[in-house]
Computed example of a mutant assay.
Amino acid sequence: MFDSVVDWAVSLMDTLGAVGVGLAILVETVFPPVPSELVLPLAGFTSTQGELNVWAAFIGATTGSLVGAWLLYWLGAAVGAKRLRAIAERMWLTEGADVDKALHWFSRYGETSILLGRLVPGVRSLVSIPAGVHRMGPVKFSVLTLIGSGVWNGVLIWLGVALGENWTAVSDVINRYSTWVYAALVLAVVGFVAYLVVRDRRRKARRFSDSS
């Protein structure tokens, strides 16, 4: 996986330069298994060899992040809150009110989640979808995405420049960080499902009590 992604990224950079970096990050934003922690440090290292302008790589990467984020934003907008409520009503354990609660939470903390979510592996892409469902203002969404993605892209490219031929160390560190993040997400999902199951049982118990 590592070698194939590196070969693919090198091929894009050799052929398209900074545009290739942008395309790689666009794909990574929409399809997270393509890791930016490989592509961006590699771009930084490549710039030290005189084969790529580091600022052009940063602009390309951040543009790719924004385009990918907008694709997921419009996916969320196309689904919309109304459809999500209908889906929630048909699903086991959930109801339309859960969607309303989630949207209410996003209205309070959406800006922070968009900004900081860009720095969290596994969340960086997904956070654009609720922004679309909530119909966050396009300008605000774009600015927050550019800031968050710009920090992530800039740090990883700079690390590739600083580490030189040891640029792969960035991926090793972030992979360890990602493992903890994914473990926390799994625990959160398990906890949320447990909460839904308990809530469903309590409601059934109340209905049985009211009917008897």
Score class of each variant (00 low, 15 high):
P138F: 12
P138E: 13
V139M: 03
V139G: 00
V139P: 01
V139T: 02
V139C: 00
V139N: 01
K140M: 07
K140P: 12
K140Y: 03
F141K: 15
F141Q: 12
S142V: 03
S142D: 00
S142E: 00
V143H: 05
L144R: 06
L144W: 04
L144I: 07
T145I: 12
T145E: 03
T145G: 08
T145V: 10
L146N: 10
L146W: 09
I147A: 08
I147T: 10
I147M: 07
I147L: 10
G148I: 00
G148C: 02
G148Q: 02
S149G: 14
S149L: 10
G150Q: 02
G150E: 04
G150K: 11
G150D: 03
W152M: 05
W152G: 04
W152L: 05
W152S: 05
N153H: 00
N153R: 00
G154W: 00
G154L: 00
G154M: 02
V155S: 15
V155K: 14
V155I: 15
V155E: 11
L156G: 02
L156T: 00
I157W: 07
I157R: 08
I157V: 13
W158R: 11
W158I: 12
W158N: 09
W158H: 11
W158C: 09
W158F: 13
L159D: 04
L159Q: 10
G160K: 10
V161E: 06
A162K: 15
A162N: 05
A162S: 10
A162M: 09
A162F: 05
L163W: 01
G164C: 05
G164E: 05
G164V: 04
E165Q: 15
E165M: 12
E165S: 13
E165W: 08
N166D: 14
N166I: 11
N166M: 07
W167Q: 11
W167C: 08
W167R: 02
W167S: 07
W167V: 04
W167D: 11
T168H: 14
T168E: 12
T168A: 11
A169E: 14
A169Y: 11
A169P: 07
A169N: 13
A169L: 13
A169Q: 13
V170K: 03
V170H: 03
V170Q: 04
S171P: 06
D172R: 13
D172S: 14
D172W: 15
D172T: 14
D172F: 11
V173C: 06
I174T: 12
I174A: 11
N175Q: 04
N175M: 12
R176K: 15
R176H: 15
R176A: 13
Y177V: 14
Y177E: 10
S178C: 03
S178G: 06
S178V: 01
S178M: 03
S178E: 06
S178I: 02
T179N: 09
T179Q: 12
T179R: 12
T179W: 12
T179I: 13
T179C: 10
W180N: 11
W180S: 11
V181E: 07
V181N: 09
V181A: 07
Y182N: 13
Y182F: 15
A183E: 06
